[in-house]
Design a protein around this nucleic acid. Structure first.
Length: 511
RNA sequence: GGCCCAUUCGUCUAUCGGCUAGGACGCAAGAUUUUCAUUCUUGAAAGAGGAGUUCGACUCUCCUAUGGGCUACCA
């Protein structure tokens, strides 16, 4: 069936979106854009118990930071509004009742407490309690009770739910775009709750199928944790008579902890020293905070590039992809089947790659706030130039200050190792000579200075490393930094001479 | 426990019956270098095990093992 591609990302606002969720959103987005389709954002807030204020805004802000654009949905509207399930509540009961009338579902009056008791009892006998064909006619349901009693119970306000009447011993055959053909016998499944009168809200299963149908979703791309409920969803489409327009399914492999042993969870991040969330998060209830990629200094392009390659590959040896390149090359056929462990080291490597490719102008914008924090006020051009000189040594923008502070601030102390090695013997005398050579240079440009100083070193027969490192000690204060003439030309003659004098004044040479 | 999914270097992965099993991260060594980095070169490193199908299996089938997911009036 050829129809317009419409996919949805349908998170539940129960907390900050974690990177597994971001990847699901990303794959949906790439798929939609690749096929010229629409990306829909639907908020599945059918669990009133677990609702967390602020989570929805967090999700929207995260997607925006990542560059994942929403065509239709919460925050942008669209022809199928509202896109928040709590605002669609009156829609679902009608469909649940339709299923009851058609014999695909029934009312059940047991409370969760009663069911807990039954589960415990079964457990103590070494059995598993399943709410299915074997018990539904023995429990208080519209299948065991008379119609009058059912009506009476509902009328007097008893709590009820509508459960799906899972067929007995039928084989459901399903197709998944990533996993292929899957078969399940319905006898291993149970009668899932579809609608609960207590809060007048559907459960995920009903709301999901109804909304996907109503919103004309063509492809459902979601995490592997949903694979076990796929037979139920197939049957639901059948029960509603919507098989013709049923979406195609693709279940994505899970993102696993770096150490293995389970899917990546909210707690792994702080414990292992890497963020599991795109953005910084403060829990409105507990006050707990969590790191985010954005605040930890990751570029959204690097973050997305890293995430895209966790579970998908283009089949070529290309590693670096812009969003547009991802859109162009993405396909569900190349999504892998097995879970992928998250690799913090590789995330850093990606960020460094993007850092190295930034232009001076881009770097200037990002670096200026940090310079301001340190009380440095310089032109964008200057900030960009310095950042550009040192970017290859940095992974994050935040690394730049340590790497470049000596461009702006004269050293006040000297790294011991470098000082011990070079501030001794004949070096102070040579530096004094070099000071005079520098003082005599009019054109302090990188090339000219280099030429004159090198000629002088050669004529004197001094060791290159000896001279340059002693100068480095004076100008930088440590054994690090870029080429020496990058530093001299940036600082200018006056500042260079000042720093050389300061070294003589501050540090007594050894021997 | 039951059901479902998965299984190539430590990790992410390529391979769609012909493999001297390729790339990347990380790791190690070397080269370059005025320092620190970068960069470059090289190296170590893999088909879970067992049956079958086949002229030929990493690739197909089955079993076992291992890992993971689900098993709520949560999504």
């Amino acid at each position: 069936m050829n129809r317009p591609v419409r996919v949805r990302f349908a998170p539940s606002p129960t907390g900050p979106l974690h990177i597994g969720g971001v990847r699901t959103a990303l794959y949906n987005y790439l798929f939609a854009r690749h096929h010229g389709g629409k990306m829909i954002l639907r908020i599945e807030d059918t669990d009133s118990q677990r609702f967390v204020p602020g989570a929805e805004d967090y999700i929207i802000e995260s997607l925006r930071w990542c560059g994942i654009e929403i065509d239709e949905g919460v925050g942008v509207g669209g022809p199928h509004a509202p896109y928040r399930q709590s605002e669609r509540r009156e829609i679902y009961l009608k469909y649940a009742k339709q299923l009851v009338e058609a014999g695909w579902a029934y009312y059940a009056f047991d409370t969760s407490e009663e069911l807990d008791v039954l589960r415990k009892e079964a457990e103590s006998k070494g059995e598993t309690f399943a709410y299915n064909y074997s018990v539904r006619e023995k429990l208080p349901t519209s299948l065991s009770l008379s119609q009058e009693e059912v009506e009476e119970r509902i009328a007097r306000g008893d709590i009820w739910v509508i459960r799906f009447k899972m067929p007995e011993n039928e084989v459901v055959e399903m197709d998944d775009l990533i996993r292929g053909h899957v078969k399940v016998n319905t006898s291993t499944l149970d009668d899932k709750v579809l609608y609960k009168s207590a809060d007048a809200l559907p459960t995920y299963h009903l709301a999901n199928i109804v909304d996907d149908h109503l919103m004309e979703i063509s492809h459902v791309i979601r995490g592997e944790e949903w694979l076990p409920s796929l037979p139920l969803h197939y049957l639901l489409y059948k029960a509603f008579g919507w098989e013709e327009s049923q979406p195609q399914f693709a279940h994505l492999p899970l993102l696993l902890k770096p150490t293995g042993g389970g899917k990546l969870s909210k707690r792994d991040g702080d414990k292992m020293g890497f963020p599991v969330f795109p953005l910084y998060w403060v829990s409105p209830t507990t006050g707990e905070t969590a790191h985010g990629y954005r605040e930890d200094g990751y570029f959204p392009e690097a973050f997305i590039n890293m995430l895209a390659l966790l579970g998908w590959n283009p089949g070529t040896e290309q590693e670096l992809f812009s969003m547009q390149e991802l859109i162009d090359t993405f396909s569900l056929e190349r999504v892998s089947k097995s879970g992928a462990r998250f690799q913090p080291d590789k995330a850093k490597w990606f960020n460094a790659q993007y850092m190295h490719r930034k232009s001076d102008a881009e770097l200037a914008v990002l670096y200026q706030p940090i310079l301001s924090e340190h009380g440095i006020e310089v032109a964008d051009e200057v900030a960009g130039k310095v950042a550009g000189i040192m970017k290859e040594r940095a992974t994050f923008i935040g690394d730049l200050w340590d790497l470049t502070s000596y461009f702006f601030v004269a050293p006040t102390e000297y790294e011991e190792k470098q000082a011990r090695k070079y501030w001794k013997g004949s070096n102070p005398a040579i530096l004094a000579e070099l000071r005079e050579v520098l003082a005599g240079i009019d054109d302090f440009s990188l090339e000219n200075t280099e030429q004159i100083v090198h000629a002088w070193i050669e004529s004197k027969g001094y060791g290159m490393g000896q001279v340059m490192n002693t100068l480095r000690l004076a100008l930088v204060g440590a054994g690090k930094g870029p080429g020496m003439y990058d530093v001299t030309s940036f600082l200018g003659k006056e500042e260079c001479l000042k720093r050389i004098d300061a070294l003589f004044a501050n540090l007594t040479p050894a021997e």
